[in-house]
Design a protein around this nucleic acid. Structure first.
Length: 513
RNA sequence: GGGCCGUUAACUCAGACGGUAGAGUAUCUGCCUUUUAAGCAGAGAGUCGCGUGUUCGAUCCACGCACGGCCCA
């Protein structure tokens, strides 16, 4: 009997924690839970062990017709999952059960599971996690269905799931409550399955080439390896300021000095910058270093590596991103930095060698410059605004100015340029590689130059790292190294416009002011 | 940091150019042993993001704030 007075009450049911928001639906679900408990049934048992995955069942039996399934009625399946839909007919019901591999319809009949279990079952709701076992059959409409012979509540759900048709679409809710997003949206699950596949492919390819996976400090006394502002933190016992790393680069190259010759790290970096569709304060980067190689060797490897990832998750080197086709087939376009400014950016030739003209143009385009900024920084800003967005098809840019590359080896026949490339896909920088600077005296001078820039007010300039110079003095074999932004690669290969869609828990401000 | 847009029931969304709000789904009650956005009948559910101001009266207007989205820096 419905007790409407009780339905209306604002009083929480027994056991409702007051620290979380409450509503009538939650109260109703807790009431049902109490009733189930009152029947002597545990709400959170941990005994049921599913023997099967729904995906496997569908793969194995999905093509069998009614008669074939009938003849295999002794093949009992045993699965566990969450109730995503429930259609009840009084003495029978259909349940849509979802596990990590897929979903399957369950038919529960009073005469199939027995009066007692059916009484409990009638109290179950969408969102509850149950275990069921029984044979498969096909319904009148030919849907593969498990006939429940046994059914058990595994976990009671106190909160209502979003509506079945529209699901959860509110972007903020999807990021904050990613668990709900994952329950409700197959497309979200697919993104993170693809991400895992991409990371796995990268590791496999690197392992095949003899790279060793290592882990270097994320908390660093001297943040180095990239031009970026670091996060600061503090170690209480040591009484010491620490930085979250902006890159693992300098540590990985110390390992090259140490004789490891081929190393990689695929992990998080932290940069204290604004948030955008391309930037999250913490992001995942692959960095790898190979001794006795040049940046040109890595360009070839990059084409292979990115291509392998595309084949793995898209099955093709021709992919579509945000409605436009991208062809990852090698060889990729290769353009000199200055040439790209002229041909793609439409920059007047005199700007390329005239600091004042370059700074002027950069400022016109919105660039902010300090007194000490030279040609390299100005041209780089111009590049970012005029050229980068145009590089839709995969493109290597080479011939970068030395001024913006303090860790790269100087080009043998142009002292203003370094042996470096960046590659761009879909108008975004996706990776950066270079022949490493292994002349310790040159490196020391570059650091000193960075120190001067820092003194002049550039808080993105790199810190002096004397131990790194000391390591180079022991001798680092000629080495090429590269970093690839994993989040951006995943965006590309899952056709996502925002980096937040490919990060499980993107950084958001707290919900309550 | 700036601009634009958004925030209404658990979810997805309407809405009134000021008079304290609706739909669908979900939920509750009843019926129903092959449904699949099940169906039929009935019912309940809201601090209209937060605050201040204007007003007889604000969810709606104004200002501020919070959170989010997109664009720009």
């Amino acid at each position: 009997m419905a007790d409407k007075a009780e339905q209306n009450t604002k009083e929480p049911q027994a056991g409702t924690p007051r620290i979380l928001e409450d509503n009538s639906l939650i109260r109703q679900r807790r009431k049902k839970a109490a009733e189930i408990k009152g029947m002597g049934v545990s709400l959170f048992p941990n005994k049921f062990r599913p023997r099967d995955k729904i995906g496997d069942i569908v793969a194995r039996y999905g093509r069998m017709d009614s008669n074939q399934l009938e003849s295999r009625a002794e093949d009992k399946c045993s699965i566990a999952g969450r109730i995503m839909a429930l259609r009840s007919f009084g003495k029978a019901a259909f349940v849509k059960l979802q596990d990590r591999s897929g979903s399957l319809q369950i038919h529960v009949q009073r005469d199939g599971v027995g009066q007692d279990k059916y009484q409990v079952f009638k109290k179950l709701e969408v969102g509850d996690i149950i275990g069921v076992s029984g044979p498969l059959f096909r319904t009148r409409t030919q849907e593969l269905t498990l006939r429940a012979e046994n059914i058990i509540l595994i976990t009671k759900s106190f909160r209502p799931l979003p509506e079945k048709f529209h699901g959860l679409t509110d972007v903020e809710a999807r990021y904050r409550q990613r668990y709900l997003d994952l329950i409700m949206n197959q497309s979200t699950r697919d993104i993170f399955l693809a991400r895992a596949a991409i990371v796995k492919t990268i590791r496999r390819r690197l392992e095949e080439r003899g790279f060793l996976e290592v882990e270097t400090p994320m908390m660093q006394v001297i943040p180095g390896g990239a031009t970026a502002r670091p996060f600061e933190t503090y170690h209480n016992a040591l009484g010491m300021k620490l930085y979250l790393r902006v890159a693992p680069e300098l540590y990985l190259k110390r390992l090259i000095v140490g004789g490891m010759e081929r190393v990689y790290e695929l992990n998080r970096n932290f940069r204290n910058e604004g948030i955008s569709v391309r930037h999250n304060p913490e992001f995942t980067m692959l960095e790898f270093y190979q001794a006795y190689a040049t940046y040109e060797d890595l360009m070839v490897f990059t084409e292979e590596l990115v291509g392998d990832c595309a084949k793995e998750v898209k099955g093709s080197l021709k992919i579509e991103y945000q409605g436009r086709e991208i062809d990852l087939s090698p060889p990729w376009r290769n353009l000199d930095f200055r040439t790209s400014l002229l041909e793609i950016g439409g920059v007047p030739p005199d700007v390329l060698f005239d600091v004042q003209a370059a700074l002027g143009l950069s400022r016109e385009l919105g660039g902010v410059h300090k007194a000490g900024d030279g040609l390299g920084k100005a041209l780089n800003k111009i590049f970012e605004v005029l050229v980068e967005p145009e590089l839709w098809q995969p493109t290597f840019i080479t011939g970068f100015p030395k001024e913006i590359s303090p860790l790269s080896r100087t080009c043998d026949h142009d002292p203003d340029v370094v042996d470096r490339f960046e590659f761009f896909i879909a108008g975004r920088e996706t990776g950066n590689g270079f022949s490493e600077l292994n002349d310790p005296d040159d490196q020391l001078e570059r650091f000193q130059g960075q120190q001067a820039e820092r003194a002049a007010g550039d808080d993105e300039a790199q810190f002096m790292d004397l131990d790194y110079v000391r390591a180079l003095e022991f001798g680092m074999p000629p080495t090429a190294g590269e970093g690839i932004g994993i989040d951006r690669l995943v965006m590309l290969l899952t056709d996502q416009p925002s980096i937040r869609e490919v990060i499980l828990f993107p950084l958001l401000r707290p919900e309550q002011g």
